[in-house]
């Protein structure tokens, strides 16, 4: 469709591509349009950049619509599983600490 539509997501983190160094990123430019390289009619494209560093270098992906939807699902699943695991770990940590503290008296 050759649109100019871009959704911008602010973020905190790092990214790297093959043969490149880790770099900090603060923005993801997200669009659904004709890809540059992928053999797809349309692709969900994400350019991870750091606007604070000038925004010239990017780590980019072009994936199919189905891949994008699966990725969204897996990100949510990973976050949910991670949150649950971390909550359990935190609870264990607190319990252990209480035992250790009690043994001191």
């Amino acid at each position: 469709m050759c649109s100019y539509i871009v959704e911008k997501a602010k973020m905190t983190g790092t990214a790297k591509g093959p043969d490149s160094a880790w770099r900090r990123i603060d923005t993801a430019n997200v669009y659904y349009d004709h890809p540059y390289e992928a053999h797809l009619d349309h692709a969900l494209c994400v350019d991870f950049i750091c606007e604070a560093d000038g925004g010239r270098d990017r780590v980019a992906i072009e994936i199919s619509r189905e891949s994008a939807l699966e990725l969204i699902e897996k990100i949510q699943a990973a976050l949910a599983a991670g949150d649950a695991a971390h909550a359990t770990a935190a609870a264990c940590s607190v319990a252990a600490s209480q035992t250790e503290i009690a043994s001191l008296f």
């Binding site: 100019y4 871009v6 911008k8 430019n29 669009y31 540059y36 390289e37 350019d47 950049i49 925004g55 010239r56 270098d57 990017r58 980019a60």
Partner: peptide, 12 residues
Amino acid sequence: DDVGARVRAAGG
């Protein structure tokens, strides 16, 4: 492709 991505991000 990188130049094009920058132009897109700037609104064309």
